[in-house]
Nucleic acid binder design. Structure first.
Lengths: 129, 129
DNA sequence: CTTTACCTTCCCGTGACTGGAAGCCCTATA
DNA sequence: TATAGGGCTTCCAGTCACGGGAAGGTAAAG
């Protein structure tokens, strides 16, 4: 399998797949012409990575997850802990964004938004009330 | 005012203030010894920037906001539009995170998290069900 | 044989900083 | 007056996870 097919089947751009090889997440062998020759197992790994990334895991977390996935003697507790930590960090991000959102929504609501210059949004930014 | 005082009064790290000068957001004059000599107006701008950044505006949006702030003949509609677009992008981010969160929470809930290897989290990542 | 599509490596750019090195400047104390 | 410390300066490199694009080799189609 060449990189193009792997890209379309995994949903990852070819650039990303090459990058994942660079940082050692996959290690496809090479054909005599120098092309990467992906095995089914490489495709499988890449699809795993695509889904883990889609859940917001960082590359290093993905590396750990892959390691656990390939370790037959893993404890599911280790996976769960990793996922829970990630869940907590997502919750933090959501909370931060919602706090921003609340302030911003109040300001937007207070601004009449016409052609006059006075604007509570700028006022708030300037005065930090 | 030296950079240290401006840093503590604006809440921005000195490094960040130098960076903001690099990209032209502030242009403090220099003392004969080469030190930046911040005026009250510079401090004011930096505090404005700190608050705008805290609301999640990008640097380029901050640049626009500063421009509007200093333009006496601005239309508040321009400010409001900028803020509304930013609000929409925050909503997108929140939605994405909440979707991740939902999937992840389901998986975490389904994983017993003991010393056995079978784990629905890894299963989901592997099979993409 | 030519075109076209695909593959390769390499290097630069992104956003918004952060860390660290090397060196100048200013103040205070022994 | 020597020195120790802290603060200031510039510059370079690294972060994270890629994406864009150049220069060139290779394969499949007409």
């Amino acid at each position: 399998m060449n990189i193009g097919e792997v890209a379309s089947r995994s949903g990852l751009p070819a650039k990303t797949i090459r990058y994942y090889e660079d940082i050692g997440l996959v290690t496809p062998p090479r054909d005599t012409n120098g092309y990467r020759a992906f095995r089914e197992s490489d495709l499988h790994k890449l699809a795993f990575l695509a889904r883990a990334r889609a859940l917001g895991f960082s590359i290093e977390e993905c590396r750990l997850l892959l390691g656990l996935y390939e370790d037959e003697s893993r404890a599911s507790a280790d996976v769960k802990r990793l996922a829970q930590e990630h869940l907590a960090s997502i919750d933090e991000k959501i909370a931060k964004l919602q706090s921003m959102r609340a302030t911003l929504a109040t300001l937007v609501h207070a601004c009449h938004g016409d052609d006059r210059p006075d604007c509570p949004i700028l006022q708030d930014l300037a005065e930090g009330t």
